[in-house]
């Protein structure tokens, strides 16, 4: 198939979009129903529905600009901060439609934490970085409890041994990989149910990446994780299910193994085999 044909076919597929594969899971934590996202006039997510199960790692892959970040940011209403962005549809977390105007985003974002593409520790001490969330949500009654939360979170993020002697040093003084694990510690400090990660390793070197991946693998015991990645090996390594996005459509979803070995949809296959990047 030459490129022109591919593009024609793409357009055809997209206009008749129906997700291939089973979008439902047995024990869903998040249910997404017919979500559309627009930036002004521009449609960025087109009628996407998917379930996200308890304690699973769902990977989202697709060419850049296909709307992975946009979709991810719907899950904790981070898109609210972008003025031109309009989201419609239904999105249930624990049987509550979080897209409802009346939903308070503050507890929602504590429940659905987020780790960003570029490590963004606060320009404060390592301790303060982790303690900030528990402090504003009143999770600790006193300094001892706060210490415990901070140490635990750093421990879970696999960072405690590296930073225990310099908790007062600024978070920005850590290496890139350590900063990203600090951001993960910061997120888990408020005991979320779901953690969203938007290409958490794209700014890291391979060794730091390996550490973060290992961490994600451990975290899935306690959290539901949705991770956006452009590295297919990473999706294969850390996730149970994979969703493939293309131009705002959810093209195919299925067990990771299956997506990578026997993709059903042509577009998925083209992406897996490296025909668009």
């Amino acid at each position: 198939m030459n490129n022109d044909d591919l593009i024609k076919e793409t357009e055809f597929q997209i206009n008749n979009s129906e997700t291939v594969g089973n979008i439902h899971v047995e024990d869903p934590r998040i249910i997404v129903k017919n979500i559309n996202v627009r930036y002004g006039e521009k449609l960025a997510i087109n009628n996407v529905s998917i379930d996200i199960g308890k304690n699973e790692v769902l990977a989202m892959i697709g060419p850049s600009g296909c709307g992975k970040s946009t979709f991810l940011r719907c899950l904790n209403r981070m898109n609210d901060t972008i003025e031109s962005c309009v989201v419609d549809g239904e999105l249930y977390l624990d049987n509550e439609n979080i897209l409802d105007e009346k939903t308070d985003v503050v507890p929602l974002r504590a429940k659905v934490g987020m780790v960003f593409q570029k490590p963004n520790p606060f320009p404060k001490s390592i301790y303060e970085n982790v303690a900030y969330g528990p402090k504003i949500h009143g999770l600790a009654k006193n300094k001892i409890e706060l210490d415990e939360i901070v140490f635990n979170s750093l421990e879970k993020a696999g960072l405690f041994n590296e930073v225990k002697d310099r908790l007062d040093a600024p978070g920005t003084s850590l290496s890139g990989g350590q900063q990203q694990r600090l951001c993960i510690a910061r997120t888990i400090a408020v005991s979320p149910e779901v953690i969203l990660m938007d290409e958490p390793c794209s700014a890291l070197d391979p060794i730091a990446t390996a550490k973060v991946e290992e961490l994600i693998y451990e975290l899935k015991e306690n959290f539901t994780i949705v991770i956006v990645t452009h590295a297919m090996q990473q999706a294969a390594r850390v996730s149970q299910r994979t969703a493939y996005f293309h131009l705002g459509n959810l093209v195919e979803v299925g067990p990771t193994q299956k997506i990578f070995t026997t993709p059903q949809h042509k577009l998925t296959e083209s992406y897996i085999t490296g025909r668009f990047g």
Partner: peptide
């Protein structure tokens, strides 16, 4: 990104 980080933990 600093503000996003804070919003992300529920500030």
């Amino acid at each position: 990104s600093i503000k996003e980080g804070a919003l992300g933990v529920g500030a």
